Amino acid sequence: MTRETATATRLRSWDCLVEDFLAFRAQGQAVALVTLVNSEGGSPRPPGSQMVVAANGDHAGHLTGGCAESVIVDEARAALGEGRNRTLRLGAGSQYLDIQLPCGASVELYIDVTVDDGTMAAVQAALGQRQVVALDTLAPGSHQVVIDPGDGSPATGFRRCYYPPRRLLIYGKGPNAYTLARLARESDLQVSLHAPDRATLSACDGTGVDTGLLTSPASVRVPPLDAHTAVVLMFHEHDWEPALLRQLLPTNAFYLGALGSRRTHQQRCEQLAADGFPQAAERIHGPVGLDIGAGNPVEIALSILAEMVRDYRRGQGNRPLLIRASAETVDRVT
């Protein structure tokens, strides 16, 4: 009987399982990396989605929405036993006639048992530096790691792109701030909460949220931000905002939001425009969050996270996970 690894107990995006791969290897397990390389007729996961499967049956990730994961695990364990890579087709045209994917769909999976620890450690190291990195599968047993790969395709085989984990910085205090921090962390974001009071920070003790105490508006220093980072200001005392927003507006953060009414937001943007930031009205979401009629901190947090996901998927999150070479060269791998 297969078992799903305990790392899946928290809600996850499943976009990157490199950490799971290395964790299984640290346990002394042989590990298969399973990549969805093609789909026809629709699929619950996009091309490039992955699972990792250990020789003992522990696994992380999903590729078919739950209807065929047990078969994938069995096939991956068989490939590990043989020490040879293999392809697996599920759905229409598969040898597994009893497994039917929705609407006559089919998926093609590449089960790779030859990825070594050093290769995956290099991918993890790049992600730790918040770099975009790709793993090229060039031929059976042949891989290369490419930092900042751009939109190019590999010479042969296929390229699986990994993007830095989404990160959320929250500046503010009170239930709205710490509820957003906790819900975002449960949604698999890296989260930092910065507040001028210890009560707000202590509400996130033991949750995996990084915290920092703010002492004065003039002392706040925003760290370097990339295009996979969102920032939300949740102050009721808006005198904290100007110094922060002047630092945030020129950054590459994909999302900026600030708590407050429409009138407050208009005044905020007018003041920033007068200070030399005419892009403020277009750049800052205010009132922050989708209009769902939110009436409590949990609903406010949900509305903000939904707006963030929408913006991310329209921008950075719309970039492909998988880039294939030409059909002739792909045949050399699959």
Rank of each mutant, 00 (worst) to 15 (best):
T2F: 10
T5I: 00
D20V: 02
S43F: 04
S43R: 01
P44Y: 05
P46A: 15
Q50E: 13
M51V: 04
A60W: 00
S70I: 08
R86V: 13
L88F: 05
R89S: 15
L90H: 07
S94C: 06
D98L: 00
I99W: 06
P102I: 09
A105L: 14
A105C: 13
E108A: 11
E108K: 04
V115T: 02
D117S: 10
G118N: 03
A122V: 03
Q124C: 04
A125K: 02
G128D: 14
L135H: 04
L135V: 02
G141D: 05
V146F: 06
V146C: 10
P149E: 09
S153F: 11
A155N: 05
T156Q: 10
F158I: 08
P165Y: 01
R166I: 12
R167W: 08
Y171V: 14
Y171W: 07
N176A: 14
L180T: 08
A181V: 09
L183V: 09
A184F: 01
L189R: 02
A195Y: 02
P196I: 02
S202H: 13
A203V: 10
D205W: 07
D205N: 07
G208T: 11
P217A: 15
D226T: 05
T229A: 07
V232S: 05
L249I: 00
P250L: 11
T251S: 13
T251P: 01
T251R: 03
T251G: 01
S261N: 05
A274F: 03
V288E: 02
L290T: 11
I292G: 12
A294I: 12
N296Y: 14
V298E: 12
V298G: 11
E299T: 14
A301M: 12
L305P: 03
V309G: 12
Q316T: 08
N318F: 01
R319W: 03
P320T: 12
T334H: 15
